[in-house]
Amino acid sequence: MATIIRPRDERTQPARIVPGYPQTPLRNPREPLVRREPTLSELTGPLEVAGRVKLLGGDIAGHGAAQAIGQLMHLRVRVLDEDGAPVGGTVVEIWQANAAGRYIHPNDDDHAPPDPNFYGAARLVTDESGAFELRTVKPGAYPVPTGDGWWRPPHIHFSVFGKVWLSRLVTQMYFPGEPLNAQDRILNAVPDAAARERLVARYVPPTGNPHNALVFEHQIVLRGKAATAEQP
């Protein structure tokens, strides 16, 4: 199946250089990016990445005596393409801070305690309807060491492969109603308000599910449309 990739609306994507985010002016090209028409090379890409990487599953909240500290939550995500068609069988990588805002990573300092029952990394494959479910704890906010009061709001990181090279996506998901959302320099690097809103998960009022978990829903849309019959 051939895929069509169209140029994106720049207002729906983050600025490359962000005031107050000191690494961005050192790491983003000075020269304008070169616009190119995708060829077969960019309109193909790795399928079945699950055969090359280790899957870790989508249940990272722990169980019983080894349960992670924090608010248990279920996140239901659907991965779609620009036609709204499900992207099934694709690898999704997920990482997040623990409930105190601490990552298990050599780069994270000791601003908050680690949780021995929370590693914070999931890796799974979407089902045929493009869906996956993550059982986790709600991540905490954490301060960025810029020294000027920037805190990252609670967020979850995603890396998604999709069907072709140009559908590859790295993004972050935010939570509704968080006061820190309004001042976050990464979320607000996206100029279009509606596009920012689409990065925020939907809160689903609890209906007494057996695990008493908070429930959130989210949608991830990858680049790409199916090529239809040629127009006359």
């Binding site: 994507q13 780069n107 993004t171 972050q172 990464i186 996206v190 920012r196 689409r198 849309v221």
Partner: peptide
Amino acid sequence: MIPTGEATLGP
């Protein structure tokens, strides 16, 4: 549908 906005991989 409009593709999701990208974000940094982060540290």
